[in-house]
Amino acid sequence: MPSAFRIAPDVRYRVIDDEAVVVRQREGDVLVFNQVAARVIQLVGEGLSPQQIGDCAVDEFDAPEAMIREDVETFLDELESLNVVERLAPAGQDS
């Protein structure tokens, strides 16, 4: 099962008109993400697992399920590479 994520501690965000405005405080810059990524960020912020985020996205967006789940995974990887989210160590493992 994929690792869970959380919003990076220095990151602040708001969803405005379906887009996510993300401030990376450490870098001192602002990133803007589209509607699907905005929803992914929101759901990470609510503490949902990647599986649960995929389930929500499938319910909420009108596209083939496989494509949505793949998009969610891609977005999570991208958000991690941008230090917007960070991967949590599996239970029982040191972070």
Binding site: I16, D17, V21, V30, V32, F33, N34
Partner: peptide, 19 residues
């Protein structure tokens, strides 16, 4: 997708509270 300046400008023009 918008840029941040576009979002800020829309907030000014449309009266959306950002700050």
């Amino acid at each position: 997708m918008s840029t941040f300046p576009e979002i800020t400008a829309r907030a000014w023009n449309e009266g959306r509270l950002l700050d």
